[in-house]
Design a protein around this nucleic acid. Structure first.
Length: 639
RNA sequence: GGGCCCGUAGCUCAGCCAGGAUAGAGCGCCGGCCUUCGGAGCCGGAGGUCCCGGGUUCGAAUCCCGGCGGGCCCGCCA
């Protein structure tokens, strides 16, 4: 906000000789908006200023009384411990017009002085089922981060990490092989079809294992036995649920798995053979995973998200990178043997300075990190260390952001510590875990392993239907493009309008909001500004704008709000809080719509005033468009 | 047992990091505007022990401590 900056620097100039330690940013940080607008447009709490400066309040008042404010302000006064100032909206409007004239459609996107190379790794969902709404949240957040960095002038590389070496993929491949490696039906999405096989196979394998355990348990452990029985019943119920969806396929799969004497052993064999690079096994794995990824990509493209790189976990192993890393670890002073396995021990590292540098959780003792299994294969975090180094190297990255669920806080902390321990101290400090919470379904815990989830596609489909209903009810022709843009927008807006640290309780029955405080509302408001300017039909006549007319209450409020936009974007790019942006944009749309309702714009008789109103309309449109752009949401010229 | 995150209106959530003037939105509910630039809109109303208890402070939704409630993590899983 230009006014805030200007106020802060005037105050700073006035007090700097008396408060030696104070910095301009300290003053700027305490500028606030009064709770009631009668008090003024901006205020500075003197009690806070007194605290950071050291002068007592009466001295401050004295210094402040001689304050020289520039022409962006009309008056100032001290009351109730606050310095309140009023903006001179006429000069302020002129300033905004000058800025808009020079930056035009890029308004708000102030490039950072230092241009960074930033890698954003996101989504990275296990390639065993379609993207569910939890991954959807991740996808939307990752795209938002990427865009907010780009808009500030940084170079961004978007990466997806394909976890194809875990047990999960092996389970899917095993099921697929037991089915006789069928052609994937062309009338369903491959990720949905394979996701179903994955859920069935997983459930059957768990049943087999549980039965096995039960047969070995002595009858003495009655409590354990009955608990396991209950668990088994639950699994059988899940299997029946799945069977109801496709009887023949489930029966065929169950039958085939039952012919195998030790299915779980078979899965392990598959894992080992794949990691060894067995060509035949590799072919099936790659085929199956690629098919799932094809399905995911189409979901992602619905969301307007595209990755620059898809990284295969297996390639890290095949290329020898993981092996090199383990060698490096063996030579490290932190190398140890933990529970009989090669590991890194971080105990000596967890002093205050390192904790602070790596942003480790304060009161946690991070346990040793075991690097590999008995069979010599590497564990997930070990491979992730190798991957992190690759991400830094490939792109010469200044910052690597991992968009990863909050449940992996500890693993991510271990990752940073391991990098640090292995000599990648700088990288470790520049690796950011962007953490977000789960999306829960009311009553049901989502589970890919049990085939219980709501997919992103399902949600988008439902939203499209609802948007279409609204279009029809308005008697409009259903515009396919608009329908997509609004439904995708509604989804993204929902994911971005609540803080990433909060669990989202997603009820697919309770519809996503399509009225106020939603993407369609902002899109509608944008279309409205667009329509007004279209109807006007000419370019703004900058020279004829009557800036005096900025003083009418609603107009000057909108003006002030619009002027904050660059500051909002800058703050959002620093704090990485998407909800700050949604709140801001929604407020703007509210203001604009209220104003629109009471004042004619095109029909304004006074030409100078009319130009001013068109100017406000024009800038409101730009701000909504640019704000939505950062959120990954498109606008529509007409709806 | 230890740790991380969350608890604000019936519901979904801003505000908390950097304490300050009468705590804000949306949905839903009630009542108006039955449409001169786009009604997916506008105006008004009801609705709050800011989870509880202590502490710090001139001042606490905000900071600290202790509870309670919910989610998650503490694996030779990923």
């Amino acid at each position: 906000m230009y006014a805030a900056n200007s106020l802060a620097s005037s105050v700073y100039d006035a007090i700097r000789s008396r408060c030696t330690a104070i910095k301009l940013d300290d003053v700027l940080a305490i500028v606030e908006e009064p709770t009631r607008k009668e008090f003024g447009d901006l205020s500075l709490p003197l009690h806070r200023l007194s605290r950071i400066c050291g002068l007592n309040i009466s001295d401050l008042k004295e210094v402040i009384s001689g304050l020289q404010l520039n022409n962006l302000f009309s008056k100032s006064y001290v009351a109730n411990g606050y310095l309140n100032v009023f903006i001179n909206e006429v000069n302020y409007a002129k300033l905004l017009a000058d800025i808009i004239k020079s930056v035009g459609g890029r308004y708000g996107f102030i490039e950072d002085v230092s241009k960074l190379n930033i890698v954003v790794e996101f989504v990275s969902a296990n390639p065993v089922h379609p993207l569910h709404i939890g991954s959807g949240r991740n996808a939307v957040l990752g795209e938002f981060l990427s865009r907010v960095f780009e808009v500030r002038g940084h170079r961004v590389q978007r990466r997806y990490y394909i976890n194809d070496l875990g047990r999960q993929v092996a389970v899917l491949v095993y099921g697929y092989i037991r089915l006789g490696r069928p052609e994937i039906p062309s009338d369903v999405k491959p990720d949905e079809w394979l996701g179903f096989i994955y859920a069935v196979t997983n459930t059957v394998l768990d049943i087999v294992e549980l039965r096995d355990e039960l047969s070995k348990l002595s009858t003495v452990d009655q409590d354990i036995v009955s608990a396991k029985r209950l668990e088994l019943d639950g699994l059988i119920a899940v299997l029946n649920e799945l069977r109801a969806r496709d009887e023949s396929l489930v029966d065929k799969l169950v039958e085939s798995i039952n012919e195998d004497v030790d299915p779980n052993k078979s899965v392990e064999d598959l894992m080992i053979r794949y990691e060894e690079g067995d060509p035949d096994v590799k072919e099936v794995f790659r085929y199956v995973v690629n098919m799932v990824l094809t399905g995911m990509s189409s979901t992602l493209s619905r969301l307007g998200i595209a990755f620059d790189k898809w990284d295969w976990e297996s390639d890290l192993v095949f290329s020898g990178l993981v092996k090199e890393l383990i060698e490096l670890a063996r030579k490290s002073e932190y190398f140890t043997i933990h529970k009989g396995a090669p590991a890194l021990d971080f105990t000596s590292l967890q002093g205050e300075p390192v904790k602070l540098l790596l942003k480790l959780p304060k009161n946690v003792e991070i346990p040793p990190l075991i690097l590999m299994r008995d069979d010599g294969t590497a564990l997930y975090v070990t491979k992730d260390i190798a991957y992190s180094i690759t991400k830094f190297k490939d792109f010469n990255a200044d910052l690597v952001v991992n968009v990863v669920g909050n449940e992996q806080t500890l693993a991510q902390a271990q990752l940073r510590l391991a990098l640090y321990a292995l000599g990648f101290k700088d990288e470790a400090s520049r690796l950011l875990h962007y953490s977000y919470e789960l999306v829960m379904l009311p009553g049901i815990k989502m589970s890919g392993r049990r085939g219980r989830y709501v997919s992103v596609d399902q949600v988008l489909d439902n939203l499209e239907v609802r948007v279409e209903d609204i279009m029809r009810s308005r008697g409009a022709v259903v515009d396919e493009h608009a329908k997509k843009v609004m439904s995708v927008g509604a989804f993204k807006y929902m994911m971005l309008s609540s803080s990433p640290t909060k669990v989202i309780n997603f009820d697919p029955e309770i519809a996503l909001n399509l009225s106020r405080n939603s993407a369609p509302y902002l899109q509608y408001t944008y279309a409205r500004t667009s329509s007004i300017l279209r109807k006007y039909g000419k370019d703004l006549d900058w020279g004829r704008i009557d800036f005096i007319s900025a003083s009418k209450p609603m107009r000057r409020e909108i003006l002030q709000h619009l002027s904050k936009f660059p500051h909002i974007i800058t703050k959002v790019s620093k704090d990485l809080d998407p909800e700050l942006l949604t709140t801001y944009l929604n407020r703007l749309a509210d203001m604009f719509n209220s104003w629109y309702d009471v004042e004619p714009i095109i029909h304004e008789p006074d030409e100078g005033v009319r130009q001013f109103k068109l100017f406000l309309t024009y800038v409101s449109g730009i701000v909504i468009k640019n704000g939505l752009y950062v959120m990954g949401i498109e606008v529509l010229e007409r709806i």
